[in-house]
């Protein structure tokens, strides 16, 4: 039995918008609409879907950057050896929870403070959480730079983000994240801004670190080919809901939900002799079904831990 690091149950995040400046009418956008998943220790889950489907909102809610509307987030507490809901945490526990859960952002050009040198950027989380003495912190920075492959560290410490290439910057982001020794890292398209040739080395680095440091990832991407390389399991999201979730190879070989099929058949194949056949679906119809079909909410296990949303999708085939 695999031990779960994090369990999410019926997570919802709604945004209220008003129709106009003087209008009293309010409408709700259901950015994340009742999603559930769990991530075992050391495993990574890919969250894929089109832009605007709620991937990043899910990530922000998990990292407590935005308050969730409802639902449960349970995290393994290493002191009590139990799953604990983050709602019941007091301030102090919350702080240590935040230490265990970190985030890597999409854009390495914008997520690093341009006025700080690399040393300060990586030191910041240690300073905030008051970990170790000043010397210990500096040693930790040197150590982590070696881990992420920025060697020799002395060359990088005094430099500023603009002096580094995109790949190097993303390595700094990863170093800043991992210096807290988190158990869980949320990655929001960390390689989509990078060149193909550099992308693989960043992904390899993250995979190796996951093995060495026992980190679990929630890996957000719109590219299934990237998710295949990075993740043990993949969850496919559409309009705020997870429509299919399965082990990576199982999902790619036997997709069941029409949206998953559409997504897989959209990825260009690096082989000019391959005839890609697009599985075409009617998106408006699918949106209608997913937002109105309230009777059949839920996921069904079709074997091999492969779950598919139970709403009636016959209309869009």
């Amino acid at each position: 039995m695999k031990k779960n690091l994090i369990e999410v149950k019926n997570l919802e995040k709604y945004f209220e918008t008003s129709a106009g400046l003087f209008s009293r009418k309010k409408s709700t956008i259901k950015a994340v609409d009742g999603i559930s998943f769990e991530i075992p220790f050391g495993e990574s889950l890919g969250l894929v879907g089109q832009s605007g489907c709620g991937k990043t909102t899910t990530a922000r809610a998990l990292c407590l950057l935005d308050e969730k509307t409802s639902g449960e987030i349970n995290f393994y507490n290493s002191d009590t050896k139990n799953m604990e809901s983050i709602d019941n945490l007091n301030d102090e526990e919350l702080k240590s929870f935040r230490r265990n859960i970190q985030m890597i952002f999409q854009d390495p050009y914008e997520s690093l403070n341009p006025r700080w040198n690399i040393k300060d950027i990586i030191l910041e989380p240690l300073n905030i959480h008051n970990i170790g003495s000043l010397n210990e912190r500096e040693d930790a920075v040197v150590e982590i730079l070696k881990t992420v492959g920025l060697t020799p560290p002395e060359n990088y410490l005094p430099r500023y983000p603009h002096e580094l290439s995109g790949g190097q910057r993303q390595r700094v982001s990863i170093a800043r994240t991992l210096i807290m020794k988190p158990k869980f890292v949320v990655c929001d398209e960390p390689t989509s801004m990078l060149d193909v040739s550099i992308r693989i080395s960043i992904m390899d680095l993250m995979l190796n670190l996951a093995k060495d440091l026992e980190v679990s990832y929630l890996y957000i991407t719109h590219d299934l080919a990237v998710a295949r390389y990075m993740c043990n399991r993949i969850a496919v999201m559409f309009n705020g809901k997870i429509v299919e979730i399965a082990e990576t190879e199982e999902l790619l070989k036997n997709p069941v939900h029409p949206y998953t099929k559409r997504l897989i058949s959209s990825i260009p194949v690096p082989d000019p002799t391959y005839e890609r056949v697009v599985y075409d679906i009617d998106f408006t119809e699918l949106e209608n079904i997913i937002s109105t079909d309230t009777k059949n909410i839920g996921m069904v296990d079709i074997g091999n831990e492969h779950f598919v949303a139970t709403h009636d999708v016959k209309g869009i085939l």
């Binding site: 193909v196 693989i200 299934l224 897989i264 990825i267 194949v269 690096p270 391959y274």
Partner: peptide, 8 residues
């Protein structure tokens, strides 16, 4: 070619 992932 060796650095491009594929779904098929």
């Amino acid at each position: 070619l060796e650095s491009t992932p594929s779904v098929v």
